[in-house]
Design a protein around this nucleic acid. Structure first.
Lengths: 202, 202
DNA sequence: TAAAACAATTATCAACTGATAGAAGTGTAT
DNA sequence: ATACACTTCTATCAGTTGATAATTGTTTTA
C-alpha cells in the first residue's frame, strides 16, 4: 500500500470516529485517547495527522457540513413540490443526524475561538440555512406560504423553525427508521398546516 | 448569623452558581473548582455541602424543574384561551431558560446513571411534559385542535413539538427580552395555524 | 541497496480533574 | 470560659487531559 493511501485511510478513519463521538458526547467530553482507541491507534498518532484536538474537530465539522450541503441541495433539486421537498429534507436530516445539531451549536459557541467560529458559520449557512431557506423562499414566491411580513415567517427564520423541530431530541424519543418517517411527516404537516381546526380559524 | 442559616445560604449559592454554569456549558465541561471560584469558596467546601459532583447536579435539576413546574402550572391555571396559554408558556420558557433544555437532555442521557435517570425523568414529566400536554389535551377536548388520530398530534407529542421549537438555539439567535415576545408569538402561531395559505389548503 | 520520507510507537510532560484527610477557624450552648 | 458542633481552609491524592520529543519500523525514491 502506498504511504499516501495509508495516510488518507487513517485520517479518514480518525475523522469518521471523531465525528460520531463528538456529535454524540460533545467536544469536551471526548478525549483524544478515546478517539485513538476506537481507531485502534495510540493517542499521539492523532497528532501526526492533525495539529491538535481543535483542528480535528474543525475537520469533522467541515466534512460533516459539506456532505449535508451536497445532500440537501440534491434533494431540493429533485423535489419541486413544497410539502414533498420539506418532508424529504426533514426525513434525511432525521435519519442522518441523530440529535447532533444542538450539540454542534453548543460546541461551536463554547469551545471554538472567534476566528474559527466565522469559518464554521459560513459552512453552516451553506449546508443548512441557505438550502432550507431556499425552499421557503420558493414557497413564498409561489404564494403557497403566508405573507412573511404579517406572519414573521421569512425564509431564514422559517428554516430555523424546521431545524429546531428536527434537532432536539426529547428524553424518550428513540429514532427508529420507520419512526423517522412518521416524525418527518408530522413535522412538515404541522409546520405547514398547523394544529388547529381549519374551520374555526378566525 | 445562625449556623443553620449560613449553611442554607452557602448551599443555595452553590446550587445557583452550579445551575447557571451547568446549563450553559454542560455537566462535564464545568469543574467543581470553577463553581467554587465563582462562589468565592475553595473547591473542597463543595464536598462538605454535597456528596459529590453528581449529587450537586441532581440538586440543580431538582430545584430547576420544580420551579418550572410551579410556574407553568400557575400560567396554565391563569390563561384559559388555548393560544394565549401557549403563548404565555412559550414566552416564560424562552425568557427563563436560555437554551438550557437541550443541554439538560444530553447531560441526563450521557452523564447520569440509570437510577438517577428515572428520578429525573419523573421530575421532567411533572415540570414540562405533563403541564404542556394538558394544554393540548384541553384543546383537543374542546375541538379546537385537529383530530389527533389523523394528524398525529396527541397531547404528549404535541408538547414536544412546542418544546423542540423553543429549546434549540441557532448559531445567531440572540435572546433579547423583546425578541423573545416576537419569537413566542411566532412559535405559537406557526404551531397552531401553520405557514401555508389557508385558502389553498386542499 | 542506500538514503530519504513517512507513519506509528514508547515515554513523558505539565496542567487539570474529582475527591479525601486533617487542621484551622467560627459560632453555639452549657 | 470551656466544650462542642459546624464551616471552611490547606495540603494532597491518584487518575485523566491535551500535547511533545525521541525512537522504531516501514515505504518510497534515487
Amino acid at each position: 500500500m502506498l504511504n499516501e493511501e495509508k495516510r488518507d485511510i487513517t485520517s479518514n478513519k480518525i475523522v469518521k470516529v471523531a465525528h460520531s463521538l463528538f456529535m454524540e458526547f460533545g467536544y469536551k467530553a471526548v478525549s483524544t485517547r478515546e478517539i485513538a482507541d476506537v481507531c485502534g491507534l495510540t493517542q499521539p498518532t492523532l497528532y501526526h495527522h492533525f495539529k491538535n484536538k481543535k483542528a480535528l474537530y474543525l475537520e469533522v465539522l467541515r466534512t460533516e457540513l459539506y456532505e449535508m450541503q451536497i445532500a440537501l441541495e440534491r434533494i431540493i433539486r429533485r423535489y419541486d413540490d413544497l410539502e414533498q421537498c420539506l418532508y424529504q429534507v426533514t426525513y434525511y436530516i432525521l435519519i442522518n443526524k441523530p440529535s447532533s445539531i444542538s450539540q454542534m451549536f453548543r460546541d461551536i459557541e463554547i469551545e471554538m475561538e472567534d476566528q474559527h467560529r466565522k469559518q464554521i458559520k459560513k459552512w453552516w449557512i451553506d449546508a443548512y440555512q441557505a438550502p432550507i431557506a431556499s425552499i421557503f423562499e420558493k414557497g413564498i414566491k409561489e404564494a403557497k406560504l403566508r405573507n412573511p411580513a404579517e406572519f414573521g415567517t421569512f425564509p431564514v427564520p422559517s428554516a430555523y423553525l424546521l431545524l429546531n423541530l428536527i434537532s432536539t431530541k426529547g428524553p424518550e424519543q428513540g429514532q427508529s427508521e420507520k419512526h423517522a418517517k412518521e416524525q418527518a411527516k408530522l413535522y412538515t404537516r404541522v409546520l405547514l398546516y398547523g394544529m388547529s381546526f381549519p374551520e374555526i380559524r378566525d
